[in-house]
Amino acid sequence: MSITESESNFNDLENLSISELLTGINQEDQSVALSVQKALPQIEKAVESIVGKMRQGGRIFYIGAGTSGRLGILDASECPPTFGVDHNTVIGLIAGGDHAIRKAVEFAEDDRNQAWKDLLEYKISKNDFLVGIAASGRTPYVIGGLKAAQENNIKTACITCNPDSAVVEFSDYPIEVPVGPEFVTGSTRMKAGTAQKMVLNMISTTAMIQLGKVKGNRMIDMQLSNDKLVDRGTKMIMLELKIKYDAAKKLLLEHGSVRKAVEACKG
C-alpha cells in the first residue's frame, strides 16, 4: 500500500472533540516542513535546471489532477501579479480542464494521453520545463504527460509524496516528499497538499529571484493591481530613493513599476 493511502495515526475521529481534532491535525502538519527539508537537495537540482531554461526564454508547465492540479494552477496564477511576468511564463494545467478547478471531473485523471494534448495547445517544446504533481505518484494524466515530454526531449520533474512511485520513472528531477499517513486516511488535500504547496512556493520564488525579479527582499516588478500594492510600491521607492511618499507615488504611477521608477531616477 502507498504511504498516501496508509491508515491514519488517529482513529474514531467522530468521537473526538473539536479541540482534539484541531490538535491532531496540527500535530500531523508539523511533520510536513521536516519532510520538505529532507527533499531540499532534490528541489535544488530541479530549480537549477528550471532557471537555466527560463534564462533562455523557456517556460514552466505544471500538470496535475484534483488537488495537485489546483495547486499548480494557484502557483502559476500568482506569478504574474507577484513578479510581473507574462501569464504564459508559468502555466498550470489540470486534468479535466478549467472546469475541474472548481468541480471534480469524473475519471479525467485516468486519461494517460490527455496531458500531452493539453500541453501541445501551448506549443510546449524542449526549451520549456514540465513539472508533474501527483501525491500518489501514479496518476495516469501526469505519468502520460511526463513520459511524452521526455520522448520529446523536454526536461521533467515531479512532486510526489510516495517514494519510488511511477512518476519518478519519467522525471529527470524527482522530488519526493513522503509526509506519512493523512489525518483522515487517504485525504491527500491535507499533509500531501501542504507539502506540494511548499515545494511549489520554493520552485517559483527561487526561480524568480534568480531571474532578477526581486531586489533586496522586495518584489520590484509586482503588478499594481490594487491600492494595497500601489501603497507597497510607493514605500519601496521611498526607501530606495530617500524621497517623500507623494513624490514616490507620483513616480510609481508615472512609470508603472518600482523597477522602472527607480531606474528612471538613477539613470
Rank of each mutant, 00 (worst) to 15 (best):
1 M>R: 12
6 S>H: 09
6 S>M: 11
6 S>E: 10
14 E>I: 12
14 E>Q: 15
19 S>Y: 15
22 L>E: 14
23 T>W: 15
23 T>L: 14
25 I>F: 13
26 N>L: 05
27 Q>P: 10
30 Q>Y: 06
31 S>W: 11
34 L>T: 13
37 Q>V: 13
38 K>Y: 09
39 A>C: 14
39 A>I: 11
40 L>C: 12
41 P>S: 10
41 P>R: 03
42 Q>H: 04
44 E>P: 08
45 K>M: 09
51 V>I: 14
51 V>K: 01
54 M>Y: 00
54 M>C: 11
57 G>Q: 05
57 G>N: 01
62 Y>C: 07
64 G>R: 01
69 G>S: 02
72 G>Y: 02
73 I>N: 11
78 E>C: 08
79 C>E: 15
81 P>G: 00
83 F>P: 12
84 G>D: 11
84 G>L: 07
85 V>K: 06
86 D>Y: 09
86 D>T: 12
89 T>C: 08
92 G>H: 04
94 I>F: 01
95 A>W: 06
95 A>R: 04
98 D>Q: 09
99 H>F: 13
101 I>D: 03
101 I>K: 11
104 A>M: 02
104 A>I: 05
105 V>S: 08
107 F>W: 10
107 F>G: 12
108 A>I: 03
120 L>N: 15
123 K>F: 10
124 I>N: 08
125 S>Q: 02
125 S>Y: 01
131 V>F: 02
131 V>A: 02
134 A>S: 15
134 A>N: 09
136 S>A: 02
141 Y>R: 01
142 V>K: 01
143 I>R: 01
143 I>G: 02
144 G>R: 00
144 G>Q: 00
146 L>M: 00
147 K>L: 03
148 A>E: 14
148 A>K: 12
148 A>D: 10
151 E>K: 13
151 E>I: 09
153 N>V: 07
155 K>T: 14
157 A>K: 03
167 V>G: 04
170 F>L: 02
174 P>T: 06
176 E>R: 14
177 V>C: 08
177 V>W: 10
179 V>T: 06
179 V>I: 08
180 G>V: 12
180 G>E: 09
184 V>I: 14
185 T>F: 02
189 R>P: 10
190 M>C: 12
191 K>L: 04
195 A>K: 04
198 M>D: 08
198 M>K: 07
199 V>E: 08
201 N>M: 09
201 N>H: 09
201 N>G: 11
203 I>Q: 04
204 S>P: 11
206 T>A: 09
207 A>F: 11
209 I>Q: 10
209 I>S: 08
211 L>P: 07
214 V>F: 05
214 V>H: 03
216 G>L: 05
217 N>Q: 11
220 I>A: 06
224 L>E: 04
226 N>T: 04
227 D>T: 14
228 K>I: 02
232 R>C: 03
234 T>I: 01
236 M>E: 06
236 M>F: 00
239 L>Q: 15
245 Y>E: 12
248 A>V: 00
252 L>I: 02
254 E>T: 14
255 H>C: 03
258 V>T: 03
259 R>K: 15
259 R>T: 12
259 R>C: 03
260 K>R: 13
261 A>W: 05
263 E>S: 14
